[in-house]
Nucleic acid binder design. Structure first.
Lengths: 358, 358
DNA sequence: CTGTTAGCGCCTTCAC
DNA sequence: GTGAAGGCGCTAACAG
C-alpha cells in the first residue's frame, strides 16, 4: 500500500472514522458525514419559470398535461439552474424506487460477471438502477444484504442463493424476488439446467473407457451442485459406471488443486468438477503429481467460462449465464406489473463442449 | 430462449410494457407498476409500543438517548410488526442516501470484477450500498449513468472513465467523485501505474534481442493506454529499440486476434498488448499463422488477469485492481467527511511477471 | 429521557 | 391548463 493511502486510512482510524456509518441502528450523523450541499429543488425552478411547483412536477412526469410552451419554459429554467429531481423525495411520494437489487455469491467468480452485465443492461433499458451485492458465499451475509436492499428496491434477483428455502419465502413476501439457479416452488426462477450437459459428460467419459468417475462437488447449499450431482449419479447408474463424490465446497482454483491429493487415492480415472475453476485446479494438481491430461486422467469442467484458455483446453459444459441474467430481469419486471406470474420456471438447457482434457 | 420467457416477453411487448419505466421525464405510473403494498411505518410501531414516533426513530438511530428498556420494548414491537425503516424517507429527511455508485466500462472484462468486489466489500463494511453501472465503453452512456446515480448517492467512483475531462469536473462539482485509472488534477484518484511494468517489459524484450517491438493499444480515451504507450516509447528510445504502435481500440480477444494480420506485416518480433485479453487474441492469431510463441514472436500482456491460464502461460504486467477498488472507497469516504482531500493522487506501481510467452 | 412540532422534496388529488 | 393544499415516512430541533 502506498503512503498516501496509509496516511489517509491511519488518520481516519485515529479519528474513529473507519467503521459502520449507516444501517439499521447506526447513527447517521456525528461521524462527520456532511449533509449534501443544498441542491436545487422544484420550488426554485417554479419560481424561476414563474409557475407553481406542481407544474414543474408535471413538466417532468406528465408533460402532456401542460401546454407545450409551458413545458418548454419550465425545462429551460430547470436546465439553467441544473435541476435534478430528488430521487428519494420522488420515491417517498410515489412508493416507487426505480431500483433493482442483484445478489451473487462472488462477483469475482468468472461465472457471474457476464450474468451481472446482462442483468445490468436489461435493467438499464427499463430505466432501473441496480444495486449489487456480494454475499461472499455466506447465507448470513446474503440475508443481511437482502435486508439492506429491500428498503430501496422494487424487487431483487438472487443468483445462486445460499439462503435456506424458508428465508427466501419470507423475503419474497415483502418484495418480489426472482431466483437464478435455485429452484423454490412459488418463486419465479431461471434455471440453467446443467443436468443435461452433465449427463452428456458422463456418457462421453464412459465411451472413452472410464469405469470410475469422480464428481467434485461445489457449495452444499447450491442448487446447481445438487442438480449436477444427481444427474451424474443417474447417468452413471444407467451406463453401469461407478460414480464417487468428493467435496470441494467453495468453488475455486485452490479448492480444486487441494482435492487432487484425495482424488489420486481413488479408483477414478476421470473427474467432472462443479465448475471450471475447480476443474482447472484439479488440472494443475494432477500435473503437479505428474499425471498426464487427458492420458492419465480426464477432466470435465462446468460453466465454460475458461474456454480455450487452459492448457490443454478444458472440456466443459456450456452455460447460458447472460441469458439467465437478462431473463431474470424480464421476469422480475413482469412480476412487478402483474403479481400473477407467481410461479414461472424457466429452464435453459446446456451441452457438453468437448475440448482436449477428456 | 425458452417458451415461457418468449411468451412473457411477447406479451409484455404487446401490452407496450417493454420500454423505459423510470427516469427523468418518464411517467412512473400508468405502465402498470403497482405501488408497493403498504408497509409498516414508524407510527404503527409507535402505537404498538405506546411511545411517540420520534422515540421509535431514536431507538433505531441513536438508542443511547433512550432508556434501555424503552429501546427494548420498541424493538420488540418493531420486530413483531416486521418494521423496516423506509430508506427514501430517511434519505429525504437527512439528505444522506447511504449509497455509493461505481461505473466501469465493462463488467465482464476480467480486469474489473475483482476491483468491483473489493470496492463492494469495502463499501459494505462502511454500510454503504453500491449501485453498479456498466458504461459499455461509451462516454455518452457513462454520462447518462452518472446522471441517474447522482440523485441517490453520496458519491461516485468512476473506473477507467472514458468521459472528457470537462465532464468529470462538472460532475465532481455536484457530487464527490473518485477516479480509478484516470488522472484529472483536482479530482482524487487511484492510479495503477503500469508504466513501471511496461518499462520493465521493454527492457526484458530488448535483452532477449528484440529490436522492433509493437505496442498494441487500447481505448483512445483510456488514461492507462496513454500511460502505457508513453512508457513504452520512452523505454524503447532509451534502449535504442524501435517501437511501433498498432490500434486495437476495444480491448478484447477478438480485437487482438484481428490485429495480428497487420502485426505480421511489420518488422516487430514482439508485442506488448494493452491488456491480457488482447494479448491472448494475438497469441491465437499468431498460432493461426503458424508462428511459434515465443520462438517466432514474443508477447507480453497487461493486468495479469489470465495468470497461467493461457498456453503457453502469458508474460504479463501485474495489476493491483483489488487494492485500487478498496482504496477508492476509502478515499471517497474521506472525501465525504472532509471536503479537504480534494487532490489525493494514489499511485500503485506494477511489475513484469515473466512467464513463457517472451 | 420522552413527546411535540416542523419540515425534507415531490406528487397528486382537488378546485379554479 | 394551472394553482393550492395535503401527505408520503422519517428525522431534528425544541420543549418539558
Amino acid at each position: 500500500m502506498q503512503p498516501v493511502a496509509c496516511q489517509l486510512l491511519a488518520a481516519a482510524r485515529a479519528r474513529g472514522h473507519i467503521g459502520p456509518v449507516f444501517g439499521a441502528g447506526a447513527p447517521r450523523d456525528g461521524v462527520g458525514l456532511a449533509r449534501q450541499r443544498h441542491t436545487v429543488t422544484i420550488s426554485q425552478v417554479a419560481e424561476a419559470a414563474g409557475v407553481a411547483r406542481s407544474s414543474v412536477s408535471r413538466a417532468f412526469t406528465r408533460p402532456h398535461l401542460l401546454r407545450p410552451d409551458t413545458v418548454e419554459r419550465i425545462k429551460a429554467a430547470a436546465a439553467r439552474l441544473g435541476y435534478v429531481p430528488n430521487h428519494s423525495a420522488r420515491a417517498l411520494s410515489t412508493g416507487l424506487y426505480g431500483n433493482l437489487a442483484m445478489i451473487v455469491p462472488d462477483v469475482a467468480n468468472p461465472f457471474f460477471p457476464p450474468m451481472i452485465r446482462a442483468a445490468q443492461d436489461a435493467a438499464d433499458d427499463l430505466d432501473f438502477c441496480v444495486l449489487l451485492g456480494n454475499s461472499n458465499e455466506d447465507p448470513a451475509n446474503e440475508d443481511r444484504l437482502v435486508g439492506k436492499f429491500v428498503a430501496q428496491t422494487e424487487g431483487l434477483i438472487l443468483a445462486s442463493s445460499r439462503l435456506p428455502r424458508k428465508r427466501i419465502l419470507d423475503h419474497a413476501q415483502r418484495r418480489p424476488i426472482v431466483l437464478i439457479n435455485r429452484d423454490v416452488e412459488g418463486i419465479p426462477r431461471v434455471l440453467i439446467d446443467s443436468a443435461s450437459g452433465v449427463a452428456q459428460a458422463v456418457a462421453h467419459l464412459a465411451e472413452r473407457g472410464h469405469r470410475t468417475i469422480a464428481y467434485v462437488s461445489g457449495p452444499a447449499s447450491s442448487w446447481s451442485d445438487k442438480s449436477r450431482r444427481a444427474a451424474a449419479e443417474k447417468a452413471a447408474a444407467r451406463l453401469g459406471v461407478t460414480l464417487i463424490t468428493l467435496p470441494a465446497r467453495i468453488p475455486s482454483f485452490e479448492a480444486g488443486r487441494d482435492v487432487t491429493d484425495v482424488l489420486i487415492g481413488t479408483e477414478a480415472s476421470a473427474a467432472i468438477a462443479f465448475d471450471d475453476l475447480t476443474a482447472h485446479g484439479i488440472m494443475e494438481g494432477m500435473m503437479a503429481h505428474d499425471r498426464a491430461i487427458p492420458g492419465d486422467f480426464a477432466i470435465v469442467g462446468c460453466d465454460d467460462v475458461l474456454a480455450n484458455l487452459t492448457r490443454p483446453p478444458l472440456t466443459s459444459i456450456s452455460s447460458r449465464s447472460q441469458e439467465a441474467g437478462q431473463l431474470a430481469v424480464s421476469l422480475l419486471c413482469e412480476l412487478l406489473r402483474s403479481r400473477s406470474v407467481k410461479d414461472a420456471r424457466i429452464v435453459l438447457d446446456t451441452q457438453l463442449v468437448v475440448r482436449q482434457t477428456s
